[in-house]
Nucleic acid binder design. Structure first.
Lengths: 228, 228
DNA sequence: TGCCGACAGATTGTCAACAATAGGTTGACC
DNA sequence: GGTCAACCTATTGTTGACAATCTGTCGGCA
């Protein structure tokens, strides 16, 4: 921190994240998580510590710590002396993740119904309208993610939100594949609208039911895709 | 693996656990988790890597990996260059953990109601009877843990069970303190019996409601304890 | 030809040393 | 006497090297 003081301003940070001097472990963790989630590292891929370390320009220590953290989240798994691999989800696992998300989404919707204000609901309605008009699958996928994230943010329950987030990360693949079908998107958004109506009406029981059913309908759509 | 070929058969495994040649990281993780859960390391305790390593007779590497894993589970938290400390739960955190457990327990009870068989339910009834007769707080606490674990095992949903387990570890302190009061134990076990009845009757909706209410009643008992 | 055991390369597990940073302490200065 | 700054120590972050283990391969043998 001497002659380089001013230099920090000349080197713009990636402008997406604030520059919270993160340790290498977190950098590695984010990088690996991104690669797994975007498909660069498909399920089953062996994760060679030395190769990853070399690729990221760090030593194996931070890589091992990052892998240990990802192991806890369920994104990777491994056995002693056999290394880590990107977790492969069986159909039953995916189904379980759907169940979990349904449970959490129902809870969030019910809670939101009890604390909803016009100011809270307005942006949520905006998402539904935007999804209604969206024809691009990729854009819809992103909007859908943001919509659900907004629901949980508005519901104001950190643990349930965190658990939903974890479930999303674990089951991203099935959900993404499922939303590609345009018919699925229309059905899905109709469910969004119905759930929002219940929330706006302050009907917690109905909001919960619809919030759960929405995710379980997603599960059925995925199962249908799996079958045919 | 040369002259010792036959020796493997002559050396009986410790017969308590299969010999899961665990890496040091897992040993350290288990040890730390046990110390946190039994109160040897109270919330807020600084976790000095070098001291822990020396205490356990290992180097800092495995300790750091174990801490990173525990960080993901919420048992410890830390900031860069400031080390880890045992997580301190605010009242709001404890309340959230209760919400989470209620949700998961309700799900498990409902699911169990749909797949219950006499063979599955018999041992569960045994727990309720045993708790009925138990006067020692510590023994009741253990029985209660085993009972709920048995519920989740019988429900057959790995993710929900794992999430419940994680929630238990996070909120152990409040629950333990709350069950010390003998009146709380009686109320709690009455709820167990009612929930079991609904499960045995195959009434999933009622089982779910009672399963949720049981944990939420625990939350209320804890809140009462907190207030007075 | 098929199977079993030993060898070799690759990979993970562990460790001790080095570098960087946060927090407390001491001393000077106002 | 109080405040501020420079230093110093304790602790964390990171690294490269060493040890232990696994996996694939090669050769021998029935």
């Amino acid at each position: 921190m001497t002659k380089g003081v001013g230099a920090r301003d000349t080197v713009p940070v990636p402008d997406t994240l604030p520059p919270p001097r993160r340790a290498l472990t977190d950098v590695v963790r984010s990088s690996l998580e991104a690669r797994i989630l975007n498909g660069s590292l498909p399920p089953g891929t062996r994760l060679n510590e030395a190769a990853l370390a070399a690729d990221l320009g760090v030593s194996r220590g931070p890589v091992r710590e990052a892998l240990r953290a990802l192991e806890q989240t369920g994104l990777v798994e491994g056995e002693v002396h056999r290394g880590m691999r990107v977790r492969v989800l069986e159909a039953e696992d995916v189904a379980e993740v759907y169940d979990m998300r349904a449970l959490l989404n129902g809870f969030a919707c019910a809670r939101l119904a009890l604390r909803a204000t016009p100011a809270l609901l307005a942006p949520l309605h905006g998402f539904v309208v935007a999804m209604e008009a969206e024809t691009d699958a990729e854009a819809y996928y992103t909007l859908n993610l943001d919509f659900h994230a907004a629901i949980f943010a508005a519901a104001g329950h950190r643990r349930v939100a965190a658990a939903y987030d974890a479930a999303l990360r674990e089951g991203w693949r099935a959900r993404r594949e499922s939303l590609v079908a345009v018919g699925n998107r229309q059905d899905s958004n109709a469910e969004h609208a119905a759930c929002m109506a219940a929330i706006a009406a302050g009907d917690a029981a109905e909001a919960r039911r619809l919030g759960e059913d929405h995710v379980l309908a997603g599960k059925r759509r995925w199962l249908a895709l799996l079958a045919g």
